[in-house]
């Protein structure tokens, strides 16, 4: 049976102090090769200082149809934001 190289998701830290960000995917036989390929495909112009690769099958995502259930409850919780609280004008640095 013909086997294909698995798919990997690539995350790049663009500079120290920032978190890794998803940039795309690629195929590679294993993790070492995925790192090497990610270097060539996604960082040819100093776009990164650190790489993460993770095999795509290991990523679990929420179902889009659960969107409302997951995210709508945050919509009406205005009291979680600083502007919800009324304070006098003369109060500084708060």
């Amino acid at each position: 049976m013909k086997k294909n190289w698995p798919l990997w998701e690539v995350f790049v830290r663009s500079k120290q102090g920032l978190s890794h960000k998803h940039v795309g995917s690629l195929h590679a036989a294993n993790a070492d090769m995925a790192i090497e390929n990610a270097r060539d495909v996604y960082t040819r112009r100093r776009e990164g200082v650190s790489l993460w690769v993770v095999e795509s099958v290991h990523i679990t995502a929420n179902k889009p149809e659960d969107h409302e259930e997951l995210f709508d409850p945050a919509e009406d919780k205005v009291y979680r934001h600083p502007t919800f609280y009324d304070l006098p004008e003369e109060l500084k640095h708060i």
Partner: peptide, 26 residues
Amino acid sequence: IAKVQDEAGHGLYLYSACETLGIERD
């Protein structure tokens, strides 16, 4: 050389985008 390597890279970005629509690279 750098340009031709970029073309390969562009092909790979695009194949990767295409695969998100549920078709295999192969």
